[in-house]
Amino acid sequence: MQIIKNRQIIEDRWQHIPDLTDGVTTDTLPAGDIIVPFSLWQSDKEQLLQHSGGLGVRLNSDHDVAEISPDLSHFAIVALQFPSFRDGRSYSIATALRQHYGYTGELRAVGNVLRDQLAYMERAGFDAFEIDASQTIEDALNAFGEISVKYQTSSDEPLPLYRRRA
């Protein structure tokens, strides 16, 4: 599948493991790089740490980010859900991961990820985007440069504009 990473279209090799409700256990995990739901991480941490491929975790927008923060060093990817583009919680979760917990790995937006929210997502700290199937991924790339002035601090900008005005 193609995703956007660091403003480029790339071929992605990571596999999403569905939520536990779908009857997934660590016994049935595929080989290779996987993104597991947070609930699976909570229940099967030890087994997952034995997994031979890369490991990422996926948080729903109602998860408390404090719960995952001690474990961040185990993940190459943290994926945050947008159940709807109108659900803005993951912007604050991303902000917390980047600015308060110092997470520097890949932060990936998944779910209802649409062109016109990408720039805000990037500012909040996302660097990878699984674009919703309804969108044209090439066109989505145009979204990043639309607004070049940043008044406020965010994950991409440590200083408010008032410290940067020429």
């Binding site: 604050s92 997502m121 008044y151 965010s154």
Partner: peptide, 14 residues
């Protein structure tokens, strides 16, 4: 006004 204008974190509040 400047702080809140196009604040990336707060465009999709409840």
């Amino acid at each position: 006004r400047q702080w809140s204008t196009l604040h990336p974190e707060f465009a999709y509040l409840p």
